[in-house]
Structure formats: C-alpha cells, structure tokens
Design a binder for these strands. Structure first.
Length: 422
RNA sequence: GUGCCUGUAGCUCAACGGCAGAGCGCCUCACUGUGGAUGAGGAGGUUGAGGGUUCGAAACCCUUCAGGCACCCCA
C-alpha cells in the first residue's frame, strides 16, 4: 500500500459487508420505533453555530464540534447532536403540530474527539423523543422502547441493563446532606464519574469542592443506597409502569446515573452491558423544556440517543449479529464468448423483466473463471448458453450449491429459475 | 487536549543492530464448454511517514501520522 490517500481520522469505511450490518441495525431500530408509533424525521447535517450556543452550552461547540466558516464567513457546525435541531424544528411549527409528538431519527453525527474503541469522530445515532408531555408514563414508554429494542436484538436482561435515576431526587437528597445549591452541579458531575476514578482520588476531589468529611460519608452512603428510588414521586410510579409494560427485568435503579447534559431535569437513564466492558450503549432522560432556548414556548419531553458503535461492538462480542449473506438469491448469466454476448444480454433482460435478479458477466472469458466468480459472489445458480444450447434452443442452469446442471428449453427458463430460487 | 502501548506483504504474524520471511489469501497454468479440491509456477514491501545515531537500522533516538488503553468529554 504505497500512496493511497488516507481517510479522515476517526471515520470508518463501510464496505458492503459492514454496510449490510448497518442496514440490519437500522431495520431493527425502525421496527422498534414504529412498533410504538413513532414517525421518522431528519434534519440537516449542517447547522449554524448559534443553534448549539443556545442549546448545548458553549463548551460543546468550542471543544467538540467540527466548526468551519462558510464562504460568507458564517460559522457552520457539523451537527454534534440532534436535540437542538429537533428543538428548532418543533419550535418552527409549534402551533401546527399535534402533541404529544413521537419522532425518531437515524443519521450521521460528528464530534472532534480522540478516537478509541466505541468512540469515533463520525458516527451514527438513533434519536427518539416523545415531546409535549410531562408524565412519568412518557418516561416509562421511552425506557420500554429501549428495552424492547434490546429484546428485538436478542439481548437478555442479564446481558444489558437500563439504569435509572432522577435528578430531582438527587438534588433533594444532596440538599438533605447540606450540600448547597451552587455546589450541587459540581458534585453531580463527580457522581457521574465515580466509577472512572480511584476511590481515594474521588474522595479527594469531593473534599476539594468544600464538603466536610461527614458529608462525604453521607454522600457515599447515598450512592450505595439502591432503595433510594422509593423516596421519589417519579420513580415509584415509573417502576410499576415498567412492570406493566413488560420490561421491568431490563431496568434497575442506580443512584450514580446522572448524565452529563444540563437539559435533563427529572428522570435520567443509561443502558450498559452488565460486564462493564463497554461504554454506555444509550442515554437519555426527561427534559422540562425543549424549545424555549431556540425561541419557542416551553415544551417538556423525554428522549434518548444511541450511537451505532457501542451497540455493534456489544452485539459482535455476543455473536448476535446474524450472518449477512451476500446476494444468494440472484443468477449469474455467463458469456460464453464474444459471439454469444448478445444472446446472453437478451436472456438477462428477459429474466429481469420477470423480476429476477440477474448479474450479467461483463465480458467474454473462460467459463471456469466465470463460475468461480459466481461462486464467490454467492449467486444461487449460473446460466450458460453456447453453440450447443443455441442449436437446441436451450439454456443450461447450473446450481452452484449442488453442482448439478440441466438443460432447459428457452420457453421454460423463467419458470425453472424461479423454482430453483424459491 | 494529557499520559502510556502498538504499527513488518491483502490478512495473521516471524526475523540477536548483520541477505525482510512464513502461513493463509491473490493471480497464472495443468483444465481450448464448467466453480470450493490437488499440484506447479508467479505477483505483491521505501518494515506507517520523515529525520538522526551507526560500517550497517524493521530493531536504538527524535518528530509526525494512524490505531488501541486510561484521563478529559460524552451531545
């Protein structure tokens, strides 16, 4: 490999084999989304930087988005997330849309980050939101969508868990410990990272923020309390509703789930593989106000986003991605020699008109080579027409799997091939 | 953005500072009307790139690029 121009750092090439897997994943996403009555939508991949400045906070755009000036000098960002776009789209038609809105989307996103396993600079993301209701039932539904999706993929509750918490609950509990309102955001951010730091370092960081040692131990007791949810007016009904929705097995309470995004206000959730080998599979939560920052009237909702990278790594590791067969249903029309190129093309066209997938060999070549090609691309059978067949007005059908071949009259060809492929 | 690890043929990997190799794959032929087997040939490398040390570098040093791991961040 000498002078092949390199791809952009953190991007991936999808050769047909990988593309087939991606399409398979999209199909699962579509099925699950539609099962719950969600409609597909999409926005542009380019947005003005103002949109994100309004919605996502400045650090996101400055540090992690691909931003460039267009020819007029306006700063444009490659979308790093969909929520601001969604907010903009909803706000623009706020008075004509029918709420609650159930929308889903799948598309590419970009973040200027250091690539590593489970994280690339260009990735695909499933976004799904229920907008215009503030209820716990809405939260339960989105969690159920995620759980149902896992079920559709063949994942079991012992392999993947959706961990749930509630920010209001945490705010209240932190208040009980005597942590002031201005300290809480920093503490919440630390809680979010507790599993990523050595215990001593974490303790130190907490004390550095100004907590007293007894507050630290109260905080740690809080984070170890798996029954904390029973004190939440949102989580109590949430868990029985999840029971009713048939997905309770996939869900657990975890006081350490916070989520980084500021716009989540109530229930938040994150799905992880139970071995802890991979990054979070998906994350989401309840927001009080989707569109106000972009100029609309306040509108609550709940949603989550799932990147394609981690889920595929997990499914790959668990052997849950079915073999994507290449072609398999098609026919290869061989070209015996240059004198038979025309008749081969006519037969190919004839079969295509009957709705059959036909690959016409693009030049005259040795039969052995053409059959080897047929074998490799995985077509079900190959057709041969040479001088002998012309004389008899027949075509040879060769079944690649059984290695059997037969001569069939031209008139019976379509019927015979259809039977073979069925 | 910070630290550490890795980079040799299409793939998986060898080679003490001393001739760059193997297996698999690929191409051709044996087979001028028949694919997975077999056999015989063959192609394919500036050892990621650039510089330095050395009589001599795939190996040691520096830089850079890419990937991986941890941090950061996670929209």
């Amino acid at each position: 490999m000498k002078n092949i121009i390199k791809s952009v750092k953190g991007t991936r090439d999808f050769y047909p084999e990988e593309m087939a897997k991606r399409q398979w994943l999209i199909e699962k996403i579509r099925q699950t989304s539609e099962l719950f009555g969600y409609e597909v939508y999409d926005g542009p991949c380019l947005e003005t930087i103002e949109l994100y400045a309004a919605k996502s906070g400045e650090e996101l755009v400055k540090e992690q988005a691909f931003v460039f000036p267009d020819r007029s000098g306006e700063l444009i960002a490659l979308r790093p997330e969909l929520t601001p776009t969604l907010a903009r789209m909803v706000a623009a038609r706020q008075n004509e849309l029918t709420f609650p809105l159930r929308w889903w989307s799948f598309g590419p996103f970009w973040r200027y980050e250091r690539p590593q396993k489970g994280r690339s600079r260009e990735f695909f993301q499933w976004n799904i939101d229920l907008i215009g209701v503030d209820s716990v039932a809405a939260d339960a539904e989105l969690i159920a969508v995620a759980a149902k999706f896992f079920q559709n993929l063949g994942l079991r509750p012992d392999q993947v868990q959706i961990l749930v918490n509630n920010r209001k609950l945490m705010e209240r509990e932190l208040n009980f410990i005597g942590i002031s309102a201005e300290l809480r955001p920093a503490i919440l951010r630390l809680i979010d990272r507790i599993d990523k730091q050595p215990a001593e370092a974490w303790d130190e960081n907490v004390l550095k923020l100004g907590l007293l040692p007894n507050q630290l131990s109260s905080l740690k007791a809080l984070l170890a309390n798996k029954d904390l949810w029973q004190r939440s007016n949102e989580l109590l009904p949430l868990f029985w509703q999840l029971e009713a929705l048939g997905v309770a097995e996939f869900v657990a309470y975890d006081p350490k789930i916070i989520r980084g995004l500021d716009y989540y206000t109530d229930t938040v959730f994150e799905a992880h593989d139970t071995t802890g080998e991979f990054r979070a599979i998906l994350g989401g939560g309840h927001y009080a106000n989707l569109v106000e920052d972009v100029g609309g009237k306040p509108l609550p909702g709940v949603g989550f986003a799932m990147g394609d990278v981690v889920i595929m790594l997990l499914l790959e590791a668990l052997g849950l991605i079915p073999e994507q067969k290449r072609s398999g249903k098609g026919v290869l029309m061989t070209v015996f020699d240059s004198a038979h190129q025309e008749i081969a093309a006519r037969i190919a066209t004839h079969l295509r008109e009957a709705g059959l997938q036909v690959i016409l060999y693009p030049e005259a070549d040795k039969l052995a080579k053409q059959l080897k090609y047929a074998d490799r691309i995985g077509v079900r059978c190959a057709l041969v027409i040479g001088p002998d067949e012309i004389a008899e007005n027949t075509v040879v059908i060769k079944d690649l799997a059984t290695r059997q071949q037969e001569s069939v009259p031209m008139q019976a060809l379509v019927e015979r091939v259809k039977n073979l492929l069925a």
